[in-house]
Write a protein that binds this DNA or RNA. Structure first.
Lengths: 106, 106
DNA sequence: CCGATTCATCGAAGAATGTCAATGCGTTCA
DNA sequence: TGAACGCATTGACATTCTTCGATGAATCGG
């Protein structure tokens, strides 16, 4: 098991703003930014209410963790969820959950 | 969605030593410590190679995150996985993964 | 071209985290 | 009762993280 890589993914998930950004990417339709082509940095920034550099920093961390893909098109950078890091996380959680006492599985 | 609680769980998961401790709890048989009654702090400490206070600190964080239960029996504190936090984490991952593009072309 | 726009990077300040040595607390055993 | 044991807490320190303002790089419109 790749503890270092898995811990890095969880560390990226362990921030409220990043978690909110991921949830936003999961539920946003394409008609957000002025372009209507996807979710760009300014959309995430407006949703989070953080400064632009901070938003950019968080998105970079998510990309590095393999949770998000970034695609630069013209002036805008569009983000989308990536299954890479999410799979890593789910595998680890699943392995632990399989060994956990599933008594009150609520 | 409870972003704060979920982020707290992920933050607890985002450390190599804590991840290793969880994996240890998931795979350890009861014949570890001198007592043979379960996994105690000294077992985790020996496995991690950290100091006793640091180990205790990590285990406390895991308990607070709902990932581990602690039971004090005599002189020893026995730990076990808890489904509580793990379910929170899996639900969040599942929601994101359901919205992620699941074409594993790469 | 020139200005405006979108975003990334840099530098710094404050907060949070990981770590250990020293100490305290409860339990067990002689 | 006293000594040893297992563990939690405290205090301190170094590292990392979060955040922002200022600045730089690339792109589009006029």
């Amino acid at each position: 098991m790749d503890f270092d890589g898995t811990a890095a993914v969880f560390r990226a998930l362990g921030d409220v703003h990043r978690l909110r950004a991921l949830h936003f990417l999961a539920t946003a339709d394409a008609t957000c930014c002025s372009t209507g082509q996807g979710v760009c940095t300014c959309d995430v920034q407006a949703m989070l209410g953080l400064s632009q550099p901070t938003t950019s920093h968080h998105m970079k961390l998510l990309v590095e963790a393999g949770l998000v893909t970034a695609q630069k098109r013209g002036r805008w950078t569009y983000y989308a969820l990536s299954a890479h890091g999410l799979h890593l996380a789910r595998t680890a959680i699943g392995a632990l959950l399989a060994a956990a006492p599933h008594r009150d599985a609520a």
